[in-house]
Amino acid sequence: MMPQLVTVRVKRPDRHPVRVWVPVLPVVLVFSPVVVVAVVGAVVGAVVACRMYRIDVVRALGTGWRIVCALPGTRFDAEYSRTAVLVAIR
């Protein structure tokens, strides 16, 4: 299943935390022309890289798709000094 919602929370030391919910499907629909060009470019780049390193193209693209489908439930936390960024993919 494709990720549906990305939640980004930024904690700052002297201010209230900022939380932003980004629905994936509307963003993809709005940016669909750019997304199509980016996906085609990424696939072409992956095919060229697979050919250079003698990796099975179909298996590599299938593995990439499985990684994208496994993203829901992923959390990414980054802290620098007193600022923290928390990203959750649902």
Results as ranks from 00 to 15, higher is better:
residue 49 A to Y: 06
residue 2 M to S: 11
residue 60 A to D: 00
residue 40 V to G: 08
residue 29 L to T: 11
residue 46 A to K: 04
residue 75 R to I: 07
residue 23 P to R: 01
residue 32 S to D: 06
residue 50 C to A: 15
residue 41 G to W: 00
residue 53 Y to P: 00
residue 39 V to D: 01
residue 67 I to F: 11
residue 70 A to S: 15
residue 40 V to W: 10
residue 57 V to H: 01
residue 28 V to R: 14
residue 37 V to N: 06
residue 80 Y to Q: 09
residue 16 H to F: 12
residue 21 W to C: 10
residue 86 L to M: 09
residue 18 V to R: 14
residue 9 R to M: 10
residue 87 V to L: 08
residue 51 R to I: 07
residue 41 G to F: 03
residue 34 V to D: 05
residue 16 H to L: 11
residue 88 A to W: 12
residue 39 V to F: 06
residue 73 G to C: 04
residue 73 G to A: 01
residue 62 G to S: 06
residue 27 V to N: 11
residue 84 A to C: 05
residue 86 L to Y: 10
residue 80 Y to K: 10
residue 89 I to M: 05
residue 43 V to D: 03
residue 42 A to C: 04
residue 34 V to N: 02
residue 6 V to Q: 05
residue 63 T to C: 09
residue 49 A to P: 02
residue 19 R to W: 01
residue 2 M to L: 15
residue 86 L to K: 05
residue 14 D to R: 09
residue 50 C to N: 13
residue 72 P to K: 02
residue 32 S to N: 07
residue 90 R to F: 05
residue 26 P to Y: 09
residue 3 P to F: 04
residue 69 C to L: 08
residue 68 V to L: 14
residue 9 R to Y: 02
residue 54 R to A: 06
residue 28 V to E: 12
residue 90 R to P: 04
residue 66 R to A: 14
residue 9 R to Q: 15
residue 72 P to D: 03
residue 2 M to E: 14
residue 4 Q to K: 15
residue 76 F to M: 09
residue 22 V to W: 09
residue 62 G to Y: 01
residue 5 L to D: 12
residue 10 V to P: 00
residue 47 V to S: 05
residue 12 R to E: 12
residue 51 R to M: 11
residue 85 V to Q: 01
residue 9 R to D: 02
residue 27 V to T: 14
residue 24 V to S: 00
residue 83 T to A: 06
residue 13 P to Q: 04
residue 44 V to A: 11
residue 11 K to P: 00
residue 84 A to L: 08
residue 43 V to N: 01
residue 56 D to P: 00
residue 52 M to S: 12
residue 76 F to Q: 04
residue 44 V to Y: 13
residue 82 R to T: 14
residue 54 R to G: 03
residue 52 M to P: 01
residue 12 R to I: 08
residue 77 D to Q: 11
residue 60 A to K: 02
residue 72 P to T: 02
residue 39 V to S: 03
residue 68 V to K: 01
residue 34 V to Y: 10
residue 69 C to R: 11
residue 50 C to Q: 06
residue 89 I to V: 15
residue 19 R to A: 04
residue 51 R to W: 14
residue 82 R to Q: 14
residue 77 D to I: 13
residue 11 K to G: 11
residue 82 R to L: 15
residue 79 E to F: 06
residue 47 V to H: 03
residue 60 A to H: 05
residue 75 R to S: 13
residue 68 V to S: 01
residue 72 P to C: 02
residue 44 V to E: 05
residue 40 V to P: 01
residue 13 P to R: 02
residue 63 T to W: 13
residue 54 R to E: 10
residue 42 A to E: 04
residue 8 V to K: 08
residue 16 H to E: 13
residue 59 R to P: 00
residue 58 V to D: 08
residue 22 V to E: 07
